[in-house]
């Protein structure tokens, strides 16, 4: 499968359609667990991003964001959701590249995209 281009998260460019994410058949029976886990982490990312925007760029908050992005990437990878895993990978890059002012917007954009993808996947379960 050709991996789509998610580099738009790094420069505020366009992103692929979140409602067109592929999940292999042998993972489908774990889809509910995956969506539930991802949604919980997306909530945490949103909280962390809003705190960041309000000035909390502490080591702890930064570490929490890195850990969440990495964990969503790991779970997506194990589920065979290569597109979401790649999107997380690009978001990890973006987080390191962007400055303090740009990071919260990128994280919220990331959250919205994955949120939409998860809603779409939940509908398929």
């Amino acid at each position: 499968m050709k991996i789509k281009d998610f580099s738009g998260i790094r420069n505020n460019g366009s992103l692929p359609d979140p409602q067109d994410v592929h999940i292999p058949g042998d993972s489908e029976d774990m889809l509910d667990d995956y969506v539930e886990s991802a949604n919980s982490m997306l909530d945490e990312i949103e909280q962390a991003a809003l705190a960041y925007e309000a000035g909390n760029n502490s080591k702890e908050n930064v570490a929490a964001i890195r850990r969440l992005l990495h964990k969503i990437k790991g779970e997506s990878s194990m589920m065979g959701a290569a597109e979401i895993s790649e999107f997380c990978h690009q978001a990890e890059f973006a987080f390191e590249e962007l400055d303090d002012n740009q990071r919260p917007d990128m994280l919220l954009r990331f959250k919205d995209w994955v949120d939409t993808a998860m809603s779409d996947l939940a509908g398929r379960a």
Partner: peptide, 13 residues
């Protein structure tokens, strides 16, 4: 050993 219960379950599968 993994901090994600989903990943542990998937690995087991």
């Amino acid at each position: 050993v993994d901090d994600s219960s989903l990943t542990r379950k998937r690995i087991r599968r």
